[in-house]
Nucleic acid binder design. Structure first.
Lengths: 173, 173
DNA sequence: CAGTTTGTTCAGTCTTGACTGAACAAACTG
DNA sequence: CAGTTTGTTCAGTCAAGACTGAACAAACTG
């Protein structure tokens, strides 16, 4: 049961919804909730703190926050004069998401190539289908790369106009 | 244990790899293997046939092939003079995959909007983060739409040059 | 040094949901 | 009609893996 002293019901609902959303994408439920929590707060959070706010064990937070950090969806930051670990949502998270799609598509392309090689002679329909799949992957990868570049350009442009409130660890209270 | 009389080890490996690939994307293992099998063969397959080839129960094939058909990843076709159900891989499958991404992004955007509304006053960092997420979703949806259009154009162009071997149910032996 | 705080790891529990076999329904066959 | 073929549904089993508490390790404090 979460310690909801610091979270409104609306915030809890958001965390739960984000949790479910990311759970679709190979994160555990708690991993997803951690992302939701970190999206919502204005300062980096410690492990014990996150465990309390979500009402889960420290062990779970420790295990799952590391997964998100390995994926560069969160960042571990230090606070001066405090030896605890703090985490915040990574500014690169959405970019990493786009990159992950490319990896997935490349993977599918490799499988399709192996499949094409495994066809029986004279399987013309399957041959055309797998050839089209390989082509589709090639196309999709090029599209995804272009999207990444356009996103970076767009972000650069926006940030030059409206620099984001820079949230480094030392600026907190 | 599969009846591998009609499948080479390379083909079985392909089916297994495709199975795992699609299992990442909210399909059951067997659902994924069915897609792999249908990608590989040159003619529509019946339920009993698929069950035998994969070494799984008819019940499982029945349940899982329906899921793939509902997603329009496979198509049910009839063979004249045969009352059994046959299935083949859908030519629209990859298009449906692209469309599914849009749905997922739209979903994330809605959640982000709810989150933005749930913020505490004065949470400037979180506000900027969620506003950026909403903008990211908008951007990604536009990109995905454009990709779909370009894929359709590309496919039309290729098919006008090299019409695919049309595999309707009646043409099989 | 002993004691505290913090993070990690691991064995065990529990939940989820995939898969099966069997019962059933529907369509057909003689 | 009785019998067969085919597909679906459902209760039950089983496996995967998420989560926990407890033990542990490491860094710090007095």
């Amino acid at each position: 049961m979460p310690d909801n002293s610091s979270l409104t019901p609306e915030q809890q609902e958001f965390i739960e919804r984000i949790g479910l959303y990311f759970a679709q994408y190979h994160l555990s439920r708690i991993g997803g909730r951690l992302l939701g929590l970190l999206l919502l707060v204005d300062r980096p959070l410690g492990i014990e703190e996150m465990a309390t706010m979500l009402g889960v064990s420290r062990a779970s937070v420790s295990t799952n926050i590391r997964v998100t950090a390995d994926l560069d969806l969160t960042e571990r930051v230090g606070l001066p004069g405090d030896r605890r670990d703090y985490y915040r949502f990574s500014p690169e998270a959405w970019l990493r998401g786009l990159e992950a799609r490319i990896t997935g598509t490349r993977q599918l392309q490799r499988i399709a190539e192996q499949g094409l090689a495994a066809l029986a002679d004279g399987d013309t329909v399957a041959d055309a289908r797998l050839t089209e799949l390989i082509d589709f992957c090639e196309f999709a990868i090029a599209e995804q790369r272009a999207t990444i570049i356009r996103w970076q350009e767009r972000r650069d442009k926006l940030h030059r106009a409206h620099p984001p409130p820079h949230q480094d660890a030392a600026t907190d209270d």
